[in-house]
Design a protein around this nucleic acid. Structure first.
Lengths: 213, 213
DNA sequence: CGCCTTGTTGACACCAGTCAATTCACGTGG
DNA sequence: CCACGTGAATTGACTGGTGTCAACAAGGCG
């Protein structure tokens, strides 16, 4: 079990790590950059996520992983993963499955960035984070911690920070959610789902997991 | 070996196929839709691609796969894939690897849609297709078949068809490429790479594969 | 207290979407 | 052989969503 302070890179683009990282506590993200310096976050990770399992088979990281908050995580050596694939087919399929969910989320985000309006995409992201955190038992009623800045969420949705803020105002003015001091409270789930055109199928959850939060 | 005529669905969103499809000949794509009916293509497939290998482990398709041209493909029963994962760890890692490349391409597209200008993203897509087709031996000098309509490419890049056309005019007017009768000819590769901010690392190719086309 | 980060808002510019008309290639039937 | 219809590509005019620039407010922290 190791830990990493807020803001630091867990893994750097172009590196060739010899271990993969299971996030135990804290928030992290994977990001890529364009030559001009603009940043795009391609994935947000919550506790329980394997943030760079794919580095086990890809030669070189195509992006960085950065800690949004102080994080605790478990490092799994690639040798160990290789051993698992040699001896435990069930576990191997489970690990593979987890990278497939990542890809499914990527596809949903592609749809959102390409074909949804800004406010819808922001609402969709909040819905997704709520569901993912709830599965991990990290929500209290309709409330959850979201220790990210608006700049980071703008980089996630592909918006400018100003326009992200405007989209957020839209959701607030419709009384769909509040967001104060890093705590999001969803006040109208059906309304938020509608505004975000959210359908959780792509998360491949067993809806049985979604007993009362 | 089965075949499918142009325009038909290979796999439909929400279905639970019991086999996966290896594309042998033709072009295909995976697409998702928004309630309003707008379409986003999340991946384009060329011969040699396993178009829905992920359906082996995901319960339900989160998107459709559609044939852009008449296609020939090999169907691999999921039972057979499961057997492979039980008995052939090397092959299992190879299959897993191929789904990880898919995800890496998704991430690069996310970066493009979120942070690149339309013309750059179009240039980037042409670069990517050229490289992927060249690896499969489907280019002749700087030329390759691209039997897709501008509407389809617009749905890939998240643009309207009109704006996609304008971005294409930009590349043509700079003499970076020509595109006539479904055949693309790259006339200035370094220029196209520059305009598209293209760096092929994310495709995880062995550059040794890229001997003269 | 003063600086820094973050959030918020307004004004304006610009990139991209929409609507619509035109052209062109092609295929079909008279 | 030609008229016609269809789908695709192209272009112009206009609208509108989003980005940029800039200013200011609020809070945390040395």
């Amino acid at each position: 079990m190791t830990s990493l302070p807020k803001g630091r890179d867990m893994v750097s683009e172009g590196s060739q790590p010899h271990f993969s990282t299971l996030l135990i506590e804290g928030f992290a993200a994977r990001d890529k950059h364009v030559p001009s310096g603009k940043r795009q976050i391609v994935s947000i990770h919550v506790p329980g996520d394997f943030v760079d399992l794919h580095s086990f088979l890809l030669k070189e990281m195509d992006h960085s992983v950065v800690a949004f908050t102080d994080c605790r995580m478990a490092l799994v050596p690639h040798d160990r993963l290789r051993d698992i694939t040699e001896r435990y087919p069930n576990l191997t399929r489970l690990l593979w499955f987890s990278t497939l969910i990542d890809a499914s989320i990527h596809r949903e985000w592609l749809l959102g960035m390409g074909r949804r309006k800004a406010f819808a995409n922001v609402a969709h992201l909040i819905c997704e984070l709520y569901i993912r955190l709830r599965v991990m038992g990290l929500t209290r009623d309709w409330r959850f911690d979201l220790p990210l800045t608006q700049q980071e969420l703008a980089d996630t949705t592909g918006l400018s920070i100003v326009h992200f803020n405007r989209a957020l105002q839209d959701l607030r003015s419709r009384h769909l959610l509040t967001w104060e001091a890093g705590v999001v409270t969803i006040t109208d789930w059906p309304g938020l789902v509608r505004r975000g055109e959210f359908d959780p199928d792509y998360l491949q959850l067993n809806m049985d997991d979604l007993a009362p939060a």
